[in-house]
Design a protein around this nucleic acid. Structure first.
Lengths: 338, 338
DNA sequence: AAAATCTGCACAATCGTTTGCGCAAAAATA
DNA sequence: TATTTTTGCGCAAACGATTGTGCAGATTTT
């Protein structure tokens, strides 16, 4: 039970390597191999448990049926969710996934891209953590199809698929305003991140339309639980406490809730909370959390679709797609009109 | 900027392919290449942005610096957590990960294993979803190093790393007993799963030691939220309602909480809850949930360590390791003695 | 029956590496 | 100066697949 190859099978069946190859790669009939021969070869392959070498195949054909997936942290349910969809979708198109978890580290991101390049993936889906697209743009110059997901660069011409974050920020803020809130604080994530910028822009737009522009109150600096906690502590200690807090991510929300609980205040009676991202557990918190849900499944499917198109056409797509988010109304926002 | 190879660099620098290879693969000095030559070659490689082909290298050396990771569902925070650790740990040993998400489907698991085999990974970490180890055992016969994580087969001689689930079940149940609970229900997952079997065994052992054996109440059949919900509904409608519910996973817990909330009962005053698995959000639920935490980080690190050892030694490890779980005491268990 | 076509397969080049071996020229030793 | 050793590098054979081309023999066409 050593390593079986075309050669070993050819040897044993008495046919040539090329004949064995044509049979086992599926175009036997196409290459005028008799059914009798094909049967013999297939049976022998079956019997000796032949597994073709994807390395040799890839080397020869310049195609690996492999996609790279670069994720900032698979340990973040949001990204895990995306990864799950993408892996599933990739497999349904007969692609295998090499996963790089960059741990939000730009250096590791670069290394990961190099690794994928050397492994000759057919294309890659990237949730970038770096701020500059140069390496990816260069990768693009190398004719490596790339699709960005969730995050992207302001200047990039690379194709991407993400939530319409502006709209998400707008809908969330608008919802609060519609419930009578006027003092709405926003705890944001890293300021260079495009989703954050856009969500904040949506927040501002909603305030502006309601004539609440000067009430704008944007704090925070990253997506950590600590950030949510600390900023909420500060917010609650202001003389003019906000009536609602808009957390730009679910992690920020968790920290925020902790601070609110510690202060003895209650959601939503004393203060309202709204968040981004959709997880099952948000339905089971007490109260359940009103939030903006991103169309993760559609994003993942579209990203793979775009990538596979690019691969087929031999050049990158030019699509830059934003999908609409959705408000999931639960019990964490108080209606101040009641 | 076409595809650069050793050949193209050799051509341009005037040296032979072998010399270029020796320089760029790092053992130039070792092969008595002069520093002057090495410098020229390195600079040329740098300039043309040479990326070695991992395919060719793998084909030639029979080593790919790649590990396979088979996970039932990356979309489950527990597995995402494990995956994160394993990926990180693998990278620190210069291994890249090919991830297969089997979606708890035995067929996909088989396909995944084949795919990894054909991609010539150096070894694989597997969280199995199937019930029979035959394919993996055969894989083992093929001299492919394998380490099982979290789940394993009763009969297997394959190496594994997992939580001491018996102890986990015991500790959880014992904790409830120590707080005065006598009617403790247990909502379990799939009965063929080793972790479930073990946790239940721990539960029974604790009851037995306390002389509460005939109070044993084991319901449920899988790890879904629905299962937790449905079974809790049933439990709460019994004439003899349990004073505590032990959920064997965090998903079961979520369903259970929903049912409890709907019934108008309160945790922990009316009924106590204890769960398995440790997630940040459990600290932010109201009340925070007392739970059994698995040493995920240690599990991941050990698994990779074991695998790399096996690879180095050319034969599978024989270690079967169980790591102790830990009780995280929060506010979901009432002390009936007070 | 001769020519043309078709069938069924084998040859050999190729993909981009690694690596044992060999061989000059230079350096060291005698 | 003659011999040995060292230095610096090239040759060529793998690794395991794919695929264009060629070539007999069988079959069909004219």
């Amino acid at each position: 039970m050593k390593n079986e190859t075309l050669f070993s099978i050819a040897k044993r069946t008495g046919f040539s390597i090329s004949t064995v190859s044509r049979v086992l790669s599926g175009n036997g009939r196409n290459s005028r191999i008799s059914e009798k021969t094909a049967k013999i070869i297939r049976e022998e392959a079956q019997k000796c448990n032949y597994t073709p070498s994807a390395l040799a195949k890839g080397l020869r054909t310049n195609k690996t049926d492999t996609l790279g997936l670069i994720i900032p942290s698979i340990d973040n349910p949001y990204f895990a969710n995306i990864a799950h969809i993408i892996i599933q979708e990739a497999r349904s198109h007969d692609y295998t996934i090499i996963l790089v978890d960059t741990m939000e580290d730009e250096i590791l991101e670069r290394e990961g891209i190099s690794s994928l390049l050397s492994r000759k993936v057919d294309g890659m889906v990237v949730v970038p953590c770096g701020q500059n697209a140069d390496l990816l743009e260069r990768t693009n110059g190398n004719e490596m199809p790339v699709v960005l997901v969730d995050r992207y660069y302001g200047s990039t011409s690379l194709p991407y698929v993400c939530t319409d974050n502006f709209n998400g920020g707008y809908i969330a803020t608008r919802h609060l305003i519609d419930k009578g809130h006027k003092k709405i604080a926003c705890i944001e994530g890293p300021r260079h991140s495009m989703p954050v910028k856009e969500r904040v822009r949506g927040y501002m737009q909603a305030l502006k339309e309601a004539g609440l522009e000067e009430n704008a109150n944007i704090v925070g600096e990253n997506f950590s639980i600590q950030n949510g906690y600390v900023e909420t502590k500060l917010l609650l200690n202001k003389k003019e406490r906000p009536t609602a807090i808009f957390s730009l991510s679910n992690t920020i929300l968790l920290g925020s809730i902790k601070a609110i609980n510690e202060s003895g205040l209650h959601i939503p009676d004393d203060i309202s909370a709204i968040s981004f991202d959709n997880y099952a557990y948000l339905d089971y918190m007490n109260p359940s959390i009103t939030r903006i849900s991103q169309p993760i499944e559609e994003i993942g499917i579209l990203a793979v679709k775009l990538l596979i198109e690019s691969i087929a056409q031999g050049k990158n797509s030019t699509s830059q797609i934003q999908l609409p988010p959705r408000l999931i109304e639960c019990n964490s926002v108080r209606n101040l009109f009641l």
